[in-house]
Amino acid sequence: MIGDKIMQVQELNFPQQMNIINQKPLVLAAGFFDGIHLGHQNVIKTAIRLAKTKQLPAGVLTFDRHPATVFGTNKSQEYQYLSLPERKLELLQKLGVDIVYIAKFNVEFSQLTPAKFVQEFLQQLNLDTLVAGFDWTFGPKNIANMQHLRTLAEHKFKVVEIPKLQFAEHKISSTNIKKYLANQQIEQANLLLGYNYQNSGLVVHGRAVGRQLGFPTANLDISANQLLPTFGVYITRVQSGQKWYPAMTQIGRNLTFNHGQNPITVEANILNFNQDIYGQELKIEWLQYIREEIAFANELQLIDQLKSDQQVTQNYFEKK
């Protein structure tokens, strides 16, 4: 909700359920928008500004799953997202979107020809204008790109193409953000996102090793379809209830114990915090990489390192 405005969300299942909720013609930003990064924000904000000048609602068209999960080379694998649907809607709401259409992306939908996609799907949305990035496609690249969309949409609705947005000679893209997260470059990823990268998960019982060492942790069960930064220790913030707390968080296998044969865990040591939060869903923001995960010779060495990590974390928040 932005002020008194409530963002409407409608699922579409082509062709059975096409419940269109905009009575006025719509200015629509189209794309999968994984992460809602600065490039995506540029597309969506353009649609919002244009809608305001035309006194029309501003909408977003996205999909319930990444197209690669339906017909891509990795469809048998768990696709990892920068933003799951709930997080995506939260980010779109902050931008001030009026309407979000979430289309079910299945085999039948993916097999629409470009002409049928425009005629039988897009035109049903009562469009005034469609806004999309220069590289948006709605089928095979050579026949379903922005240039062809202009031809197919002629006399039906207007098309606005948003040029490439770059940072340091690199395209701002979900792919490049994922590369940064995989290479401990949290601050660069956050810069391209325009906000701090976030995961969410339930607090579950762990082996209580951290508590025995004097560093109790909240063990977060983060679903496999959420992309995590690479292994290591990070400065983070954790949200419990409505409040954010400073924390240091490790992603890894607890190499010091059981020779690294443990499952992957996400363990947040929340500073100056002593509450029972088992079973709660927490949000975690990744702020800065501290160090790689290390197998220590003994518990004393590990405790010394954790004290050092905690001091680095405290210093970070004191400076902020």
Score class of each variant (00 low, 15 high):
Trp136Ser: 09
Gln93Val: 11
Val100Pro: 07
Trp136Pro: 02
Pro114Asp: 06
Tyr101Gln: 00
Ala115Val: 07
Leu130Lys: 11
Trp136Tyr: 15
Glu120Lys: 15
Asp98Arg: 07
Gly96Leu: 06
Ala103Lys: 01
Ser110Leu: 00
Thr113Val: 03
Lys104Asp: 13
Leu91Lys: 09
Gln124Val: 12
Val107Pro: 02
Ala103Phe: 05
Leu127Trp: 02
Leu92Trp: 06
Glu90Ala: 15
Leu95Gly: 09
Asn126Ser: 11
Leu130Phe: 08
Gly96Lys: 00
Val107Tyr: 07
Gln93Tyr: 04
Lys116Glu: 14
Ala103Thr: 04
Leu91His: 06
Ser110Met: 06
Ala115Phe: 14
Val100Trp: 04
Leu91Arg: 13
Phe134Thr: 00
Gln123Phe: 07
Glu90Arg: 14
Val97Thr: 04
Ala132Gln: 11
Asp128Gly: 08
Gly96Pro: 05
Ile102Phe: 08
Gly133Arg: 01
Pro114Gly: 11
Leu127Phe: 02
Thr129Asn: 10
Pro114Ile: 13
Leu130Glu: 02
Thr113Asp: 12
Val97Met: 02
Thr129Gly: 05
Ile99Thr: 11
Ala103Gly: 08
Tyr101Ser: 05
Asn126Met: 00
Ile102Glu: 08
Val107Met: 12
Gln119Ile: 15
Phe105Cys: 09
Trp136Lys: 12
Leu92His: 10
Ala132Lys: 01
Gln93Leu: 11
Ile99His: 09
Val97Arg: 04
Val100Asn: 08
Lys116Met: 07
Leu112Trp: 03
Leu92Val: 05
Asn126Val: 04
Phe105Leu: 06
Val131Trp: 03
Phe121Cys: 08
Gly133Ser: 13
Leu127His: 12
Gln111Leu: 07
Leu125Tyr: 03
Asp98Ser: 10
Lys104Leu: 08
Leu92Met: 12
Phe105Pro: 06
Leu92Cys: 09
Ala115Asn: 00
Pro114Arg: 13
Ile102Thr: 13
Val131Pro: 04
Asp98Pro: 01
Val97Leu: 10
Leu125Ala: 04
Asp128Leu: 15
Phe117Asn: 04
Lys94Arg: 00
Gln111Pro: 03
Ala103Ile: 03
Lys94Gly: 13
Gln111Gly: 05
Thr129Ser: 06
Ala115Trp: 02
Phe117Ala: 02
Asp98Met: 10
Glu90Asn: 14
Leu95Asp: 09
Leu122His: 10
Lys116Asp: 14
Leu92Gln: 01
Gln124Thr: 15
Ser110His: 03
Leu130Arg: 06
Ile99Cys: 07
Lys104Val: 12
Glu120His: 12
Phe109His: 03
